[in-house]
Design a protein around this nucleic acid. Structure first.
Length: 154
DNA sequence: GCCAACGTTGGC
DNA sequence: GCCAACGTTGGC
């Protein structure tokens, strides 16, 4: 089993929004970055666990846990001209973008803030991709050790 | 709202 | 294939 971190702007889709979805499930559409796409399409497996991260908000940080329940499949929102993430270069015969389905597992007891994670980036959390300079991927792999370290902070 | 750090696009 | 211009992300 692998571990991931996925970013979402809470104003757009928060951990509470995920919890409110029927069955706590949603499809993770709208990723339009090739590196992230490759992970969604090729690497994420059913049963993998995901840290749900709130970005671009008052207290950016890890707020909850979700589980991958469906592996990579075509992101059909790219075909919809009315969709915010419409991409005319993606078509059903030649799809360019992929997504997975995730299911809400739980909220953390508290937000593990970016600030707190950064403070550990020279020590215990060295190499944690979220706090590596310049990393703006919205989906990133993390190690089991990193997963456990973050949970220990909770 | 600013801006650093990237990624993408497209002319050449 | 290079690289300038432009767009996006996301912390602050």
């Amino acid at each position: 089993m692998a571990y991931w971190l996925m970013k979402s702007e809470p104003d757009v889709f928060s951990i509470d929004d995920l919890a409110r979805e029927p069955g706590g499930r949603t499809h993770w559409d709208g990723v339009r970055n090739y590196q992230a796409r490759n992970m969604l399409r090729d690497d994420m497996r059913k049963g993998d666990l995901v840290f749900f991260y709130h970005s671009n908000c008052e207290v950016p940080g890890i707020v909850g846990i979700a589980e991958v329940i469906r592996e990579g499949y075509v992101d059909h929102t790219a075909f919809d001209p009315d969709d915010k993430h419409f991409d005319p270069k993606s078509s059903p015969d030649k799809p360019r973008w992929y997504m997975v389905d995730i299911r809400f597992q739980r909220k953390l007891d508290r937000t593990i803030s970016l600030k707190e994670l950064k403070a550990l980036s020279d020590g215990k959390l060295r190499g944690f991709p979220l706090v590596q300079r310049g990393n703006r991927l919205s989906v990133m792999p993390i190690t089991e050790a990193q997963w456990q370290l973050v949970l220990a902070l909770e």
